[in-house]
């Protein structure tokens, strides 16, 4: 009886040890969290519908811009990185007067604050209110700022989480234009 008990105890401790060892190995070999490089199920897909009357009373429909680049930017007036990236959006918009358009969509923000934000920081591109947050959900926006680049033809080609620069966006634009030219 004694020896059997000892064997039971040894067996159980060995088994527990093995399980725990596996567990520790799993924790130890785990890779760190993913960076800000953003995957999105949207990339390669047709852009979800974004259309409406902007804050400047002009109507906008993303489908009307199927022959140019569209940079859809989700922002909020309370968000500091959004404030910082704003001049970059203006810069990109200036660079692509002919072949591109920026659209800003306030996220978690009020119309008044968004209006005040644009009055303060400038920007003449369309700003569309996302009434029932349908676009934010369709784009899977987590926290502002987030930006999506739509290629001519209406395909989402890139997503950025966090502050962007005009150069960063243009790198993707130039890349894809070069590829298109190759073909």
């Amino acid at each position: 009886m004694t020896t059997r008990n000892v064997r039971t105890v040894r067996f159980i401790s060995a088994a527990m040890g093995l399980i725990l060892f596996g567990f520790v190995v799993m924790l130890a070999t785990r890779e760190g969290g993913t960076g800000t490089a953003s995957r999105s199920p949207l990339i390669g897909q047709l852009v979800p519908a974004v259309a409406g009357v902007g804050l400047n009373e002009a109507t906008f429909d993303v489908d009307d811009f199927s022959d140019s680049w569209v940079l859809i930017n989700f922002f909020a007036s309370w968000c500091v990185p959004c404030e910082r990236e704003h001049p970059q959006l203006a810069e990109w918009s200036r660079r692509h007067k002919k072949d591109g358009v920026v659209v800003s969509v306030p996220f978690g923000d009020t119309e008044e604050d968004a209006r005040a934000f644009f009055a303060d920081h400038g920007g003449d591109w369309p700003v569309l209110m996302d009434g029932d947050a349908a676009w934010a959900v369709a784009f899977g926006v987590l926290r502002p700022p987030e930006s999506f680049l739509v290629s001519p033809g209406g395909i989402v080609v890139a997503k950025w989480q966090g502050q962007i620069t005009a150069d960063e966006v243009d790198r993707v634009v130039n890349d894809l234009e070069a590829k298109a030219a190759d073909r």
């Binding site: 000892v6 039971t8 105890v9 040894r10 401790s13 527990m16 725990l20 924790l27 130890a28």
Partner: peptide, 27 residues
């Protein structure tokens, strides 16, 4: 992280080994 994990592993090893070793006297 790695340091705390190693310490955790050390505690596990010591604990399991001690209980296994003294199993006979624990009846």
């Amino acid at each position: 992280g790695p340091l705390l994990l190693s310490f955790f592993a050390l505690i596990l090893v010591v604990s399991v080994a001690l209980v296994g070793w003294r199993g006979d006297q624990l009846r």
